[in-house]
Write a protein that binds this DNA or RNA. Structure first.
Length: 646
RNA sequence: GCCGACGUAGCUCAGCGGUAGAGCAACUGAUUCGUAAUCAGUAGGUCCCCGGUUCAAUCCCGGGCGUCGGCACCA
């Protein structure tokens, strides 16, 4: 006898080992039809799996959250079978479910192109229509390896070989085709349904290592039903409209061009936005005990050699070779970061423990020769400005400084419209400076500080900087891509390399710890994300043109110019639109230009000295006396930090 | 950097082995019109660059540059 406990607490007895299929059937025909897989004592399993001991069982149906992952995983198998059927000689590798879909990596001499999709999708629908059951088998390891080797599947053979000993080698069959897979799967290929679509092809390195062969990856999306797929595609289209590259160009914020790849040409409106954010940041830093500095752009290679950057990042630095009068060549580098220069300022004179913590900030313009494939709009560029600062402090001060930093960062993100963000903790990378003991200390200090600041984080193993562990504050763009913006890095190495010292209370000379920290990260990246966050329609305090005053008739033009002057006097960078166009046209134009507030005036308003305010792209309007309207707009155009009582 | 796709007017895009087209924008004129595109006209292009094939290349081929999507990288 064995007892199966169901989620509602009820218990069913069975004479002997049973499959999920049998249990589901015993509960009812509806469930028997709906159950795709099950969870046995909390672990996902095939429905066909035999249960031979008392267990808690929960059935997974199409409605359950796990179903999406299963559909995507199963459709990846279907894709692999279809591809091997159509393109003999193609080797399979791995094909996981991912956010919104799935992919499968294939090894094939000739890469796929989107033109191949219709044929592949048609073949996939055939396989799904056949509804072949997924059948799980466990094979002895050597047999599995021999089998895949014989079929020329060297990647699969390698995968099996590298599976840890003791892990069962499970094989899933779907009709004639089979694949190594951990499972679980749904009942058969028919459960995949028809709400899937291949989306793109891409190259991807085998096992994510650039020294390995490049495989051909096919991405797809898959959903429970057509409605979900349609909704997803609509969402993707909407997200694409928020793309900062499109909005930036369209609303005249900036442009990029071939003669300065990776550098931004900021136009007047974009630069206004930039300066608004910079001014805001400067006020926040001033109020938080930071002292701003400015350091050289071109610095002799000696300093980069001393800091260790030369050895590790020379390839990614812009160099300038100059000859002095004696024809000695000097190699200078455009600074790729600010920290070594900040240490030079710290090292001037003799520092006391009384000077610590010393918070040294710079809006530091940096250049890095980023690999061409990494460039992305203004989010990943070769010339950028960091809101950088280095806090020179004692080990004992790390926790307090981290707490203060996280508070400041949270407040700033909130002001700028980001209520939530992800924190990642990146610990020691394989290639690093400093001893393990120093790393233990640095990672420990940062973890303690996180606890003190009550910051939850996810681990990002091996992703720390070469000189120390880091916290990354990650924001997401419109298309769902994650970007590291803020960062806090603990560094015991650079003070050592650049010989930073202070005199302690007991008169001894000690090394300060350096905390490298940034909140926006780079202005370029952050503004790119900000544009996507607001779809180019900023709150009044950020908008380069917060208000446009549009006339209905030329008779109102004089009043319009007067209103604009009054708005500007109140600190609102308003523009007038007195073009000889219909008001309908003006409304459309300013919606497209992402102007947040349109003030419409005609003869009536001019006579009554009023303003009609319309929040674009909305349709509602309110009519206010001029002074009242200006006061309202001025309040809204005030940066949030200046709105708060001091 | 690697794999793939793409590069035509300011923007969005169509097109073709016989030296290019639309819509919007620009400019000119008319219209002064109360909340989601007024009408008419004019002008605008080394078809990314360099080679090659061809009687002839924007189109085909090779190389380069750039952009886009991934991968790798991200001090």
């Amino acid at each position: 006898m064995l007892a199966i406990t169901l989620p509602d607490g009820s218990v069913r007895q069975f004479d002997g080992p049973v499959t999920g299929t049998t249990i589901a059937a015993s509960i009812g025909p509806g469930l028997a039809k709906a159950a795709l897989a099950m969870e046995v004592d909390g672990l996902a399993r095939d429905l066909s799996q035999v249960i031979d001991a008392d267990a808690a069982v929960r059935f997974i149906t199409r409605r359950d959250p796990e179903a999406l992952g299963m559909i995507r995983h199963d459709v990846a198998h279907v894709l692999a079978e279809a591809v091997q059927a159509l393109y003999p000689g193609t080797q399979v590798t791995i094909g996981p479910a991912i956010e919104n879909g799935f992919y499968y990596d294939f090894a094939r001499n000739e890469p796929f192109t989107p033109a191949d999709f219709p044929a592949i999708e048609a073949k996939m629908r055939e396989i799904i229509a056949r509804n072949e059951p997924f059948v799980r088998e466990e094979w002895p390891r050597h047999e599995a390896i021999a089998f895949f080797r014989e079929r020329g599947e060297r990647y699969k053979a390698e995968l099996i070989q590298d599976l840890p000993a003791g892990v069962p080698i499970s094989i899933y069959r779907q009709g004639e085709w089979l694949d190594l897979c951990r499972g679980p799967h749904m009942r058969g290929t028919g459960d995949v349904g028809s709400a899937f679509k291949l989306t793109r092809v891409a190259g991807a390195y085998w096992r994510g290592d650039h020294r390995n062969a490049m495989l051909s990856r096919i991405y797809g999306t898959a959903w429970r039903d057509q409605k979900e797929l349609d909704a997803y595609q609509l969402q993707v289209e909407e997200a694409e409209k928020r793309d900062h590259r499109k909005i930036g160009l369209h609303t005249g914020l900036f442009h990029l061009q071939d003669e300065a790849v990776g550098s931004v040409f900021w136009h007047p409106k974009g630069w206004k936005l930039y300066r608004t954010v910079e001014d805001y940041m400067r006020r926040r830093l001033d109020a938080s005990g930071y002292a701003e500095v400015k350091t050289p752009q071109l610095v002799d290679r000696r300093l980069w050699e001393a800091s260790g950057h030369w050895e590790k990042y020379r390839e990614h630095m812009f160099l300038a070779r100059v000859e002095d009068e004696a024809e000695h060549e000097r190699v200078m580098a455009l600074k790729p970061m600010n920290c070594p220069c900040h240490v030079q300022i710290f090292n001037q004179g003799i520092r006391s423990y009384r000077d610590l913590p010393m918070r040294m900030a710079e809006f530091g313009a940096c250049h890095r020769y980023e690999p061409s494939g990494a460039l992305h709009g203004i989010m990943r560029v070769r010339a950028f400005t960091q809101d950088d600062a280095h806090i020179f402090c004692t080990e004992a001060q790390i926790a307090d400084e981290t707490v203060a930093f996280v508070d400041l960062l949270s407040s700033i993100y909130r002001d700028l419209g980001f209520d939530s963000f992800v924190v990642k903790f990146s610990d020691r990378p394989a290639s690093r400076a400093g001893s393990d003991a120093v790393w233990d200390q640095a990672e420990g200090a940062l973890k303690e500080a996180c606890a003190a600041a009550r910051v939850g984080y996810e681990m990002n193993p091996g992703e720390g900087a070469f000189y120390g562990p880091k916290l990354e504050f990650v924001l997401r763009d419109a298309i769902g891509r994650d970007w590291q913006c803020g960062t806090l890095q603990v560094d015991f190495v650079l003070p050592e390399r650049l010989d930073a010292l202070y005199t302690a209370e007991d008169g001894s000379r000690r090394r300060p710890v350096m905390l490298h920290r940034a909140i926006l990260g780079s202005f370029e990246r952050f503004l790119g994300i900000l544009i996507e966050q607001y779809a180019g329609r900023f709150p009044l305090w950020l908008a380069p043109v917060p208000v446009v005053v549009a006339t209905i008739t030329e008779e109102a033009a004089a009043y319009a110019l007067e209103v604009v002057a009054a708005l500007r006097a109140a600190g609102i960078a308003a523009n007038a639109d007195v073009r000889n166009e219909k008001i309908n046209r003006k409304v459309v134009d300013h919606i497209e230009q992402r102007i947040p507030v349109l003030a419409v005036i005609g003869k009536r308003e001019a006579e009554e000295r009023k303003l009609v305010l319309r929040r674009l792209p909305g349709r509602e309007q309110e009519t206010l006396p001029l002074a009242e309207a200006i006061a309202l707009l001025a309040a809204e155009a005030t940066p949030p930090d200046l709105r708060r009582p001091a």
